[in-house]
Amino acid sequence: MNIEYSKITLKSDYILDNYNFLGSTIRGVFGIGLKKIVCINPSKICEGCFAKDSCLYYDFFESDFAKFRLSIELGGKLNFDIFLFEEYALKAPYVISAIYKAFREIGVTKKRIKPEFMLYFNDELIYDNEFLSFENKSLIYEINDYKKDVIVFFKTPLRIKENNKFVRDKVKFETILRSINHRYSKLKNQPIEKLPFLPKYEIEFENYSFVELKRFSNRQKSAMKFGGLTGVMSIKNIDEQTYKYLKIGELIGVGKQVTFGLGKIELKE
């Protein structure tokens, strides 16, 4: 398993008070910035737009599946990563320009806060009060190690369904693997099929809390629930293929709304 990607990182010491989950805020202002950068339609209306088939904003914010992921931490500190996948990995200059416009020119929240920040591309500094030159290149994520005993930390709420209902107390391990398989297949433009292997593992212990979040949807003009599971799962004696799926999930995210920062997992031995 491998996947092509690039990573844009914003680092700031600024803390937004009373904003426990910044995913919706960051995604919203990033979207505004991106539309200002790439939109060539005078009406600014996406529905029926003549350019939608080649528009990065439409692909990221109006299509059924977006090939990017927002990675954040819970809390109010304004730090985040945006991962771009596969054919979008080389679209980084547009995303970097959109982030700059969003956080330096437009501002965050209704107060239009414009915090100091630095930007990194694939972990190399590219902006610190001025832009530095950089090579627009993608990376290939490959898994070359194998650990049979791991702990999976659910760092941001995992929003995932079982039997057509969002899980609120305990998630099946196979549900996580199926979600990773589904998202990986779509990123690779492959047919979505059942897990191509029978996973082997032992759950040692698990502990979850349901975190309820809310966001206001400008499109639907209403508040929307946005909660999911955080917690930890300790797994022993996993097979190598299962381990690879978990490592891919660590990069691409798990479950729904990963473009809002949900579904972030981290593995430790």
Rank of each mutant, 00 (worst) to 15 (best):
G231E: 09
S12P: 06
I235P: 15
H182I: 04
E135C: 07
E206N: 10
G75A: 09
F80I: 08
D239K: 11
H182M: 07
N79K: 15
V171G: 02
Y141M: 08
I40M: 08
V254K: 00
R69W: 03
E130D: 15
E73Q: 07
G75K: 08
L16D: 05
E86K: 08
L177N: 07
P93K: 13
S54N: 11
M233Q: 02
F21Q: 05
K36A: 08
L10P: 03
L74N: 12
F103K: 10
K44H: 05
E62F: 05
R168A: 05
D123G: 02
E73T: 07
Q257W: 04
N218E: 06
K110M: 09
F68N: 05
I235T: 13
E204T: 03
Q241N: 12
L34H: 04
I238K: 04
M224E: 08
K214S: 13
G28P: 13
R178H: 02
H182W: 10
I238C: 06
L187V: 11
K77W: 06
S217W: 11
E162S: 04
R183L: 02
R178Q: 10
K194H: 09
I82W: 04
V95Y: 01
K264Y: 05
F60T: 04
F226I: 06
N181L: 02
G28L: 10
I72K: 00
E162Y: 00
Y88Q: 09
I32Y: 13
I252D: 02
K35L: 06
G33W: 10
L213W: 07
K165T: 14
I143C: 07
V254R: 00
K170F: 14
N237H: 09
Y127M: 11
Y100K: 09
V171C: 02
K172I: 03
N181V: 13
G231V: 06
D53K: 14
L267T: 07
I238M: 15
L78Y: 05
N207A: 08
V232F: 03
H182D: 01
E174F: 10
